[in-house]
Lab assay of single mutants.
Amino acid sequence: NQESVVAAQLIPINTALTLVMMTTRVVSPTGIPAEDIPRLISMQVNQVVPMGTTLMPDMVKGYA
């Protein structure tokens, strides 16, 4: 089963992602794949992401 990127903390809107903000977990439905974490660093979220929420492609500016 593929791991997806999950918020390790509350991420406010327009925050640039850092490694410490993200963790990985096997979730359903699947979100952004864990191997894309290096690509996500410094990208901004376009909404508030509560802790434990799976990051979906449409939540990250410039990802999709």
Rank of each mutant, 00 (worst) to 15 (best):
V48M: 09
P33E: 10
T53V: 12
D36M: 12
P33Q: 08
A7S: 12
N46L: 12
M21Q: 03
Q2T: 13
V60M: 05
P38E: 05
V20P: 05
G52P: 01
M59P: 01
M56K: 14
P57F: 12
V6C: 06
T30D: 11
T54L: 08
Q44G: 04
P38S: 07
I32Y: 02
S28R: 02
T15D: 03
I11K: 01
S28F: 10
Q9M: 10
Q9S: 06
Q9Y: 08
I41S: 04
A34F: 05
T24N: 08
G62T: 06
L10R: 12
P38Y: 06
Q44A: 10
V26M: 13
R25H: 05
T18G: 04
Q2K: 05
K61A: 08
L55R: 01
A16H: 05
M59Y: 05
T53N: 10
L55F: 11
I11W: 02
T23A: 12
P12W: 14
V26T: 15
M43A: 14
T15W: 04
M51W: 09
Q9K: 09
I13N: 14
R39W: 06
V26N: 12
N46F: 09
R25T: 04
R39C: 13
V6N: 02
Q47W: 05
Q9C: 05
R25L: 07
I11S: 00
T18Q: 05
A34Y: 07
V26Y: 10
T54E: 02
L10Y: 10
D36Y: 15
P57L: 04
A16G: 07
T24F: 14
D36Q: 15
G62V: 06
A16C: 08
I13R: 11
N14L: 06
V45P: 02
L40A: 01
I41V: 11
Q44L: 14
P50F: 14
N14D: 11
V48D: 13
T15Y: 05
V20E: 04
T54A: 08
T15K: 04
A34H: 09
A7H: 01
E3M: 06
P50V: 11
N46I: 08
E3G: 04
Q44Y: 10
I37W: 04
P33K: 07
T18C: 04
V60N: 02
V26G: 08
I37D: 00
T30C: 15
P12D: 06
M56E: 08
T18K: 11
V26F: 12
M56G: 08
T15V: 05
M43W: 05
Q2Y: 10
P50I: 04
S4H: 02
Q2L: 15
K61T: 09
A34L: 14
P12Y: 08
V20K: 13
R39G: 08
M21N: 04
T30S: 14
P33F: 11
A16L: 04
M59D: 03
L10M: 12
V26L: 13
Q44N: 11
S28M: 06
I13W: 11
T18F: 03
N14C: 08
T54R: 03
R39P: 02
V60Q: 00
M51R: 11
L55H: 01
P50C: 12
T53R: 13
Q2W: 15
V45Y: 00
L17S: 00
V27L: 08
S42F: 09
Q2N: 15
T24I: 12
R25E: 07
P12Q: 07
L40I: 08
N1W: 05
T24C: 07
V48C: 15
T23H: 13
L40D: 00
V6T: 10
M22R: 00
V27H: 03
M21V: 03
A16R: 06
Q47N: 06
S42Q: 09
Q47C: 07
P38H: 07
V27Y: 03
A64V: 10
P50Y: 10
V45M: 03
S4E: 00
P29V: 13
T23Q: 13
K61R: 10
V49W: 02
P50D: 12
Q44C: 12
N1I: 14
V45F: 01
T24W: 13
P33G: 12
Q9L: 08
V5T: 04
G31Y: 02
S28I: 05
L17V: 03
V49N: 00
V49L: 08
P12M: 12
K61P: 03
T54I: 10
Y63Q: 03
G62F: 12
Q44W: 09
K61H: 06
M22V: 10
M56P: 01
M51H: 12
S42W: 11
Q44P: 07
A8H: 11
V45N: 02
R25A: 15
G52C: 08
G52Y: 07
A8K: 09
I32C: 05
P50A: 13
M21C: 03
N1C: 13
S4T: 05
K61M: 11
M59N: 03
T30E: 14
N46V: 14
V6G: 01
V60A: 02
P38M: 07
Q9A: 06
V27W: 03
I37V: 12
T18I: 04
I11Q: 00
V27G: 05
I11Y: 01
V49T: 04
V45K: 00
D36P: 00
G62P: 05
V6K: 03
E3C: 10
G52M: 14
N46A: 09
M59G: 01
M59C: 06
M51D: 10
V6M: 05
T23N: 09
L10H: 15
Q2G: 15
D58R: 13
A16N: 04
Q9T: 13
T15F: 08
A64L: 14
